[in-house]
Design a protein around this nucleic acid. Structure first.
Length: 570
DNA sequence: GCCGTTTTCGGCCCGACTGTTTTCAGTCG
């Protein structure tokens, strides 16, 4: 993917410029262009061929020329020249906390530091400490930063971060009592990004020092990195950072808006405010010296003439334009979900028998659910053949007689085989209430064609985890999502947002594409244990990040309407 | 390097914290 290569190239270009002490605005221009490219719908080449590169946000004459150079020659001369003169591992060095471009340039110029190993030596032999401006504490921070960089290579899943944030909020609410008012997660956790690098919590209080003191004594805190009267940073399990910020009530809304981000969204918001002659910062909205708002988050938006924007949309992916034109989507809410349509039991690799599992789902307030255990090709998961499926169906019938006001559908997660056929015949599928199809093997045998073939089957209601990615382990198979979305729209098959923390598949961007094409979605937990059921919130969050409404999602439908929606009844 | 209903030049979001600075630079979010 050329656009991804270019996006990475521009990010590194910005690092190089920063290392060389170039102007910050120029550096930002490169980073903005990198972002535009990363989030571009479709390929970059057509823009080049049709001379439309200049239409892209933040791509002017100079960057256009660089993109053309890259696309025609595979490289950018100026970049190569900068790279030539920079330390060998510049990008690795710059990723070390507290070791920024200025310090890197100094260490390179004075000590010839080229690599992480060089830096380690310069720390060990005291030569870095001997440089001007390098005191003992700064050296210690860099040493810890280097250690941290080696330990924490990857980001943390939202599946871990969101519950942790909620736990921190509960702790504060309980311990701080009437010292605190409103408390909320902020940052990428509040935006429900699939991975985050820390958790931000905002608390309303007039007694900052006291509340922050309490927070640093939370038993889950393993280390306090810093604590003042407006902010504390702590580590959980020595590997995960939480930042707490204390603000006064009059600033609550402005602060919540500011600390929720994203950075790109906030830059746009502040620009708009400035054009109206206002100044927005984390303390409020100001016209000259006068405070004109900031107590409520919506103040920030209403002041610049737009409705409040849901946190999940705040990525500068068109939400600001939509808000200005009053065409923000009517986003799906957690309470819209009436069913979980992808749940496993001990009939395959689930950990609880159906009756217990079904009780947990009913307790969550759903009206119905579907057991979709694996089919026989998933032998590792004790997959079901037609005979065992028939017996499971009988058990579900008797289960339904005992479950008042709650319906259990007999379903299956049928494997899409390497040749594109399904692992069960149509007669068996016709005997079930609900059918999910998915790829679990042979990821390299044309997953696009196999998925398209599966969608042609009139009994297949949903394609589960369409890209097969595991966020912490693999990127997913090479699937042409554009064609899959077209196929789903044509055949009337839903695509799953698998809410399991390591999948979140479809991703937010793919959800947005699907919604724009009129494809229906199904948000399911793929639960193998009741502990997995709360992850529905991650799926709904991902749907919201993809601009989905309740009407885009089939498991918001009452059961009779779900049945009418199915292909088999059309 | 980008961009324009103040502008084709002169802006570009803005503040906290830390350390080593005796007045501010670097880093971070």
């Amino acid at each position: 993917m050329k656009k991804e290569q270019l996006s990475n190239l521009f990010e590194r270009f910005a690092d190089l410029l920063e290392f060389n002490g170039d102007t910050p605005f120029k550096i930002n221009a490169y980073r903005r262009a990198a972002r535009t490219l990363a989030e571009l719908d479709g390929e970059i080449e057509p823009y080049w061929r049709e001379g439309r590169l200049g239409e892209l946000a933040g791509i002017g004459k100079g960057l256009q020329e660089k993109i053309e150079q890259f696309l025609s020659q595979g490289r950018i001369r100026q970049y190569d020249e900068l790279l030539e003169r920079a330390p060998k591992q510049l990008f690795e060095l710059l990723s070390i906390p507290h070791f920024g471009p200025k310090t890197a340039a100094l260490a390179h110029k004075e000590l010839g530091v080229q690599t992480l190993e060089d830096l380690n030596s310069a720390l060990e032999n005291g030569s870095l400490a001997a440089l001007p401006g390098m005191g003992a504490k700064k050296i210690e921070k860099i040493r810890q930063g280097l250690e941290f960089r080696r330990a924490a290579e990857k980001r943390i899943s939202i599946g871990y971060a969101l519950p942790l944030a909620e736990e921190a909020v509960s702790y504060l609410r309980e311990k701080a009592g009437d010292a605190v008012g409103r408390i909320s997660p902020a940052g990428s956790v509040r935006r429900v990004r699939e991975t985050v690098h820390d958790v931000d919590i905002l608390v309303e209080t007039d007694r900052g020092l006291e509340v922050i003191g309490l927070f640093t004594k939370w038993p889950r805190v393993s280390r306090v990195l810093g604590a003042g009267h407006t902010k504390a940073s702590v580590m959980i399990d020595d590997r995960f950072q939480i930042d707490l910020r204390a603000v006064k009530g009059e600033s609550w809304g402005a602060a919540l808006q500011y600390f929720t981000g994203s950075a790109a969204h906030n830059v746009r918001i502040r620009e708009l405010a400035r054009k109206k002659g206002d100044k927005v910062n984390e303390y409020g909205i100001f016209a000259g010296e006068d405070r004109v708002g900031g107590e409520k988050e919506s103040d920030v938006y209403s002041r610049i003439g737009m409705p409040w924007i849901a946190p999940e949309l705040r990525e500068d992916r068109g939400e600001i334009e939509a808000a200005l034109q009053d065409r923000l989507p009517d986003l799906i809410e957690p309470g819209d979900i009436r069913a979980d349509l992808h749940v496993h039991s001990t009939w395959s690799d689930g950990q609880l028998p159906m009756e217990q599992m079904a009780s947990h789902l009913r307790e969550r307030g759903y009206a119905y659910m579907a057991f979709c255990d694996h089919s026989r090709a998933a032998y590792y998961a004790n997959g079901l053949d037609p005979e065992r499926l028939r017996r499971q169906g009988e058990e579900i019938m008797s289960l339904n007689e005992r479950m008042a006001g709650f319906t259990v559908l007999a379903g299956v997660e049928v494997d899409i085989l390497p040749d594109g056929k399904l692992d069960l015949d149509d007669e068996t599928l016709a005997g079930l209430d609900f059918v999910i199809a998915s790829i679990h093997s042979a990821f390299n045998s044309d997953p696009t064609a196999r998925t398209l073939a599966a969608m042609e089957n009139r009994y297949v209601d949903v394609i589960a985890h369409p890209t097969g990615r595991l966020i912490s382990r693999r990127g997913g198979f090479e699937i042409d999502m554009e064609r899959v979305i077209e196929g789903a729209a044509r055949t009337g098959t839903a695509l799953e947002i698998n809410a399991y923390w390591d999948r979140l598949d479809l991703s937010d961007l793919n959800v947005k594409r699907a919604v724009e094409s009129g494809v229906r979605l199904a948000i399911n937990t793929d639960a193998h244990h009741p502990h997995h059921l709360p992850m529905m919130a991650l799926g709904v969050g991902t749907a919201r990040r993809g601009w989905a409404s309740a009407r885009d999602v089939i498991n918001t439908l009452p059961l009779e309407q779900l049945r009418k929606w199915q292909k088999r009844s059309r």
